[in-house]
Design a binder for these strands. Structure first.
Length: 211
DNA sequence: GCGACAG
DNA sequence: ATCTTGTCGC
């Protein structure tokens, strides 16, 4: 019997096509709010959370929780097909649009330059960045400016951001340049090693997981 | 063929 | 991601 009806080959082809539509040159303007996206699970039921925080205070102003059965398996490089649908659903239920969306996972620091953060940014047509706890693809190179950049095929796609002694792998999602990303990133971290939007969304999703 | 491999 | 108590460290 065929294990899953998920076509890995087609999914990768789609990413290769959509990658060309990612905007890595946009210089972001003023930001008033940020949305953090994350998903927790109870067996095959996903619990997605979209947490809206004000900026630069980074205080939770509103959040949405969406649950649903997740059929797509986790395949490295194809995380978006498994988690993006619920995350997008949660985002769209918010009462406001976000100036920036922070996704739990990678953006273009990805085998085909199209990780979940880029996927969501493109679908929602919003500025997005990816923040992951581990590296998926690319090489970490320390430049003369002291920054540890994540290089993919000779292109700087993100950077390693260390906060409270731990590393996070930050990358361009969509509609943002490396310049803007670097200027913005320090303002997203507070009292946890993860950026506040991600931390808040993660906390809420895990809270609903035990209810 | 042998590793590596977001969440 | 999730399964899981106590325990080492800041």
């Amino acid at each position: 019997m065929t294990s899953s009806r998920f076509d890995v080959g087609r999914a990768k082809e789609l990413q290769e096509v959509l990658a060309s539509r990612v905007d890595k040159t946009y210089e972001i303007g003023s930001i008033n709010n940020v949305v953090g996206l994350d998903v927790a699970y109870v067996k095959d039921v996903g619990i997605a959370v979209a947490a809206l925080l004000n900026y630069p205070q980074l205080q939770l102003k509103e959040y949405v929780v969406v649950e649903g059965v997740v059929e797509i398996p986790y395949v490295p490089g194809l995380l978006a097909f498994r988690e993006a649908p619920l995350m997008i659903k949660a985002y769209e239920k918010l009462g406001h649009d976000a100036d920036l969306v922070v996704v739990d996972g990678h953006g273009i620091t990805h085998p085909r330059k199209f990780g979940i953060a880029s996927h969501i940014g493109l679908v929602l047509d919003v500025t997005s960045i990816g923040v992951a706890k581990n590296l998926l693809y690319g090489k970490v190179v320390k430049y003369a400016d002291g920054v540890e950049y994540i290089v993919v095929d000779g292109e700087v796609c993100g950077l390693v951001y260390r906060w409270l002694g731990k590393n996070t792998y930050v990358s361009i999602g969509h509609k943002i340049s490396m310049k803007s990303l670097m200027k913005l990133i320090p303002n997203l971290y507070k009292n946890h090693y993860l950026p506040e939007p991600t931390y808040i969304a993660d906390t809420i999703s895990k809270k609903f997981r035990r209810l």
